[in-house]
Computed example of a mutant assay.
Amino acid sequence: MALLHRAELRPSKLDLLAAWLPGRSWFTGTAGADLTRVATCRFDDPAGEVGIETLLVRSGAGPVLQVPLTYRGAPLPGADDWLVGTTEHSVLGPRWVYDACADPVYPPALAAAVLAGAGQAEEYFEVDGRREVRPPTMTLTGSRVDGVEPPVVGAPQEVVDGDPTLIRADQVELAVVRRPAPSEPSSAPGLTATWPGQPTPLLLAYATLH
């Protein structure tokens, strides 16, 4: 489960992405246009220390773009090339925001969603001592591969930015589709998403087991 805070971020996530996205090779959108948030979901960090959130955004009239992010309370050593930016959280203080593909907490969570249908974390607020659940804005569907345990995935051995972005680890290669599209028939385990206004499942990620 993901505990959320009613907080202000300066700069906001979309402001950070508006500055960062145009520098990506896979960026497609309208130059200088405001970003629109389409849908989001979160995965759990078992240690409860790192926020893991996938944002689907659109720049102007461009296509939907997938941007998985991690939020940390301190810099991630060796990950400067994957830093999206820093922001001030009105409750938690300074936060370092990274492209999640290079953050060691993300691949295990993504592998579990793709291979075991682990789904997304339930998001909630604490309000006067009670839990207030925030309804999800998109629905994830994994392949639920029978008899396959999600591989133990450590820190990525290699991350190749592009569309898809490839995350290579010991037992699996994960592909993050930056411009989600209708899923083609494939033998590879995959993760799809739908959201209001998008009833046709779009492919977010797939996995190749070694």
Rank of each mutant, 00 (worst) to 15 (best):
R134V: 14
V153T: 05
D99G: 11
E126P: 00
V127W: 08
M138A: 03
Y98E: 10
E123D: 14
D99Q: 11
T87D: 06
V127Q: 13
P156D: 04
Q157E: 15
Y106L: 06
G162I: 09
D170A: 15
T141C: 09
L115C: 05
V176T: 05
S143Y: 05
L115I: 07
P180L: 01
P180N: 10
P150L: 02
G117H: 08
G119C: 11
R130A: 14
L92Y: 03
V91D: 12
S90L: 11
T137F: 04
P108E: 12
V176Q: 02
P108S: 13
E158W: 07
A118C: 04
V160R: 15
P151E: 08
E173Y: 04
A118H: 07
V160F: 11
D161K: 11
E123H: 05
V133E: 14
D170Q: 15
G93V: 14
V145C: 04
A175C: 04
V152T: 15
G154T: 12
P104G: 09
A175T: 00
A169F: 02
P108M: 11
T139E: 09
Y124T: 00
D163Q: 09
V177N: 00
H89A: 08
W96V: 06
T165Q: 05
T165A: 05
A169K: 00
A113Q: 08
A111H: 06
S90M: 09
R95P: 03
R144W: 07
A102Y: 01
T87K: 06
A111F: 09
C101L: 04
P182N: 13
P135D: 11
G93S: 13
V145W: 00
R168I: 13
P164N: 10
R179N: 02
T139N: 03
P108R: 11
G117L: 05
Y106G: 01
T137K: 02
E173N: 11
G142W: 02
R134E: 14
E123C: 10
Y124V: 02
P135N: 11
D128I: 05
A113T: 01
A169S: 15
A118D: 10
A102L: 06
L166F: 10
D146V: 12
C101D: 05
E149Q: 13
E122F: 00
